[in-house]
Write a protein that binds this DNA or RNA. Structure first.
Lengths: 224, 224
DNA sequence: AACTTTATTATTCAGTCGATGAATAATGAA
DNA sequence: TTCATTATTCATCGACTGAATAATAAAGTT
């Protein structure tokens, strides 16, 4: 078999205007997909590099270690979600008397939007669920760094609308809420078979509304 | 340094009555701890074997591949939880008019008991949370095999107590419930700091009751 | 034109992984 | 006594891993 001379790219800086979309982003995108599919340990830098169409050493050049790359992946979309949460909370609080439902909806919607935004967003949602299930201290710090600030604002806002319930119980219930939506978003497709044939073709948008109703009722439940 | 002659175990079948507790169980215990701490890909058979005090090839002898070992770990305690759920459901249904709360409590309690039962049980709870976050088809099959039968029974029982709510909505809400308790059990220790100093020293038993209240209220929320 | 910086590939390294074939010893049945 | 079965270790293999370094070329700067 005659070696089909592949025109190997030579090392060195590429000519300007060569690759429009940033190489960094291509790496982050593929890393996101790999980490989501296989977890931190299961994903390999070689695979990520190959899929992104670059050399493995370039990952190191841009991001440093594997852990650093993972963190960059998580912070990128996590920051977007957190930022969007702030915006939607401000908007909800601008209403004269914001309902618990509207606050819960504001909290959940950014995650929802992220999942709907495309395959990259959906991959991140899966990745996020994994990070939340990891017991390592670093994973905990990471999610705290990204998500705790907005979470605390929501706890305060909800406390204001739930006068009978002490703040720390609201905080506890918010933790329940986080678990429910993480799982639901991640599991949505497979959720269908639970009802065993009794066709569940709830439109995805309606599913979010169902979750809002469920969680709001839980938050409003009378305290001890 | 004089090589401190370690009394290496000779190959071959050990004399009878040598090792009382089953070697199989020792392997499963250590595998459980490793998988819980590092995930499937992150755990290594070498580490598991060393910790269990046996040779690595013995894992293969007893369990086959790494995946098979993982499955055995998951089925062992998963089956216990599932069995206990059946028992508690029978008991709850024996009451004249079982409340939603009592059904939810019966569903959650086996997980709770498992977590309290010792370090092995707690490790399994963490492992379980990881499995639920994994998108691979095999992980999905595994949890379905272990947990779906009891889940379906609970959906039926709850439907009986929630006359206004269609069965498939109850099924959906049960999925929310699963997410909430998986996350809560796994995250319990770290949950404390959420309320920022406002001391949360809710006893662990009370936390379970809080979750029951929260979820029952969500299940009872009026449908569409 | 000469130098520096930036972006990229190629290669190497030391280590770990899961898997496996072979050897070995205790046991129990024939 | 013989012989198959069971439980165990040993030794190693090839594949793969993350990391590190060297080489290279284009672009920018002086």
């Amino acid at each position: 078999m005659s070696q089909t001379q592949e025109p190997r790219r030579k090392p060195g800086r590429p000519k300007a205007g060569d690759d429009q979309r940033d190489v960094r982003d291509a790496i982050l995108d593929q890393a996101e997909a790999c980490f989501a599919a296989a977890g931190f340990a299961g994903a390999s830098l070689r695979d990520i590099a190959t899929r992104a169409g670059v050399n493995q050493a370039l990952l190191r050049y841009y991001f440093g270690s594997k852990q650093d790359l993972f963190d960059a992946v998580f912070r990128r979309r996590g920051g977007m979600i957190s930022g969007r949460r702030h915006v939607l909370l401000d908007r909800a609080l601008a209403e004269p008397e914001p309902s618990v439902e509207s606050l819960v909806r504001a909290y959940l919607r950014p995650q929802w939007e992220m999942k709907q935004s495309g395959p990259g967003g959906a991959a991140f949602i899966a990745l996020q669920a994994r990070v939340h299930a990891e017991p390592e201290a670093h994973a905990l710090e990471l999610r705290r760094e990204v998500y705790d600030p907005s979470l605390k604002r929501y706890i305060d806002a909800l406390s204001g609308q739930l006068p009978g319930i002490p703040r720390d119980l609201v905080a506890t219930r918010m933790a329940f809420l986080v678990g429910a939506y993480l799982f639901m978003l991640n599991d949505l497709g497979r959720l269908a078979d639970l009802s065993e044939g009794q066709i569940r073709e709830i439109a995805e948008e309606e599913m979010l509304e169902q979750l809002v109703r469920f969680l709001s009722a839980g938050l409003k439940a009378p305290g001890i």
